[in-house]
Structure formats: structure tokens, C-alpha cells
Design a protein around this nucleic acid. Structure first.
Lengths: 113, 113
DNA sequence: TATTAATACATCTAATACTTATGTATCTGA
DNA sequence: TCAGATACATAAGTATTAGATGTATTAATA
């Protein structure tokens, strides 16, 4: 990842949940590519981080899965469960709050969307 | 810490360096209190995290120390070295960039300072 | 048509950072 | 006088992630 990797720690779950809020269903590889594209290559999720996290979110009951075959190749789609949707909102909201706190603390001006 | 602790991971060095940019010299306990005050108790640094980090920054040559006695009580003041000043700017700038990237990715609107 | 790159899943080891717990000692205010 | 605040610090355990490695299919290209 282009950002010093420490920074991204703790944000992976939030990123995944948010993407699934907007996309109904996605598979692992698609998530890595989407994040890469949306961030101009600044965040490149590694598989070693992604798959264990997806499995963990599934185990927590936040994601449901559906495996499909594209030809002979397996593709595992992830979707938000009801709890996942709720949690996604919480996580994004918490992160927004965190950003505001850190901006104040570090006296940072950011571009407004 | 009030924020789910994952979020704060990776930001501790940046916070310390930034505070020392603005305060010339601070001691450990003072740093915890300042962060607590500035964030309205939302970020409470633990000593178990703080002291090892301060020692690490010193070992990296980013901080210099001066021990003083207030009565019989030891107080260890930390200041930025020349390299520390440079690194502080880098770290804050990197974090600002990270915030912008995450804001875009998570579609977050923040308050402008 | 052979080979490389991309797609797509996954696990494991090692490194790192942090939490929690523990320890020592001094000072202040009720 | 004694609890709470000030002030330092270490150690054990947990959790997260990077990086390496592995398998297999499909598409592009030389």
C-alpha cells in the first residue's frame, strides 16, 4: 500500500462494509480492484489481509456469501446482512467522527467534497 | 480510548510529533492530558502505548530528552530534533492525504475548520 | 502455440502495535 | 491520613497486517 501501512490498520472492515452498502454484492478480487481504482492506487489491499477479514465479517454475521461459477472458476460473492447494514452505518459514522477529531488535533484543512 | 481502538492505531507517532511541533518541549504525562483535553476525552492515550513509542522515537533520532526534577519527582521532557521536525511535517501531510482519500472512498462530508 | 499476465480463491509466518496489567514513587487536597 | 492525581516504566498477551506461497483458470500476446 502506498500509505504507510499502519494508517490503514483498523479501516479495512469499514472500507469493506461501505463498499458493500453501495454495491449489493461483490467478490474479493473485485473489492481489491475497486479500492485500488477509487483511490488512484494509493490503497492496495493485500489478499493476506482481505480474505481473513471477509471471513471474520462473515463469522460475525455481518456478511452472507453465495458461491458461483464463471465457467470453471469459483467466485464468492459477499453481501451485507441486515446487521451488516446497520454496522456499516455505525462504522462509517464513527470514522467520520474520528476524522474530525484528528483534523482538529493535527490542525489539518481538507478539501470539501 | 473512546474511539474503537483500531482506528487510532498507527496515528500515535503522528500525534506526538505534531504536538511537539507546537510545544517545543513536553513530558509524557502532559502529552496524555493535552490529547485528552483537545479531543474532549475521545482519545485517551494509555501509558503502555505512550512510553514505548516515545522511547522508539528517541531511538530513531527524532526526539531528544532532558530530565528534570520537580522537587523529588522526575520529569522527562521531549523535544523534536531537526530530523524530528522534518518527519513531523511528513507524517501530518501523509495523514492529511490519507484523510482525503478515505473521505472520498467512504463518501464522507466533514466540517471545515 | 507457448508463455505471461490477469483473475480468483486461500493459508501461513513473522513483524508490529497496542491493550491490559503491573510496578514504583511523589505530591496534593479533602 | 489517605485517596486521587502526577509521573515514570516494563511485560505478557492479543490482534492486525504484510509478504510469501500455493492452486487453478482464463485472456492476451509474442
Amino acid at each position: 500500500m502506498l500509505f504507510s501501512s499502519e494508517l490503514i490498520k483498523g479501516t479495512l472492515k469499514t472500507i469493506i462494509l461501505k463498499l458493500l452498502t453501495e454495491n449489493k454484492r461483490m467478490y474479493g478480487y473485485e473489492i481489491t480492484q475497486t479500492v485500488k481504482d477509487l483511490t488512484g492506487n494509493k490503497i492496495q489491499l493485500t489478499e493476506g489481509a482481505l480474505y481473513p477479514t471477509l471471513h471474520a465479517l462473515e463469522a460475525e454475521g455481518l456478511l452472507t456469501t453465495k458461491t458461483e461459477y464463471i465457467g470453471k472458476r469459483v467466485r464468492k460473492y459477499y453481501s451485507l446482512s441486515k446487521e451488516g447494514k446497520a454496522r456499516s452505518k455505525e462504522k462509517v459514522s464513527e470514522f467520520a467522527d474520528f476524522i474530525n477529531t484528528m483534523k482538529f488535533l493535527l490542525d489539518i484543512k481538507t478539501k470539501q467534497a
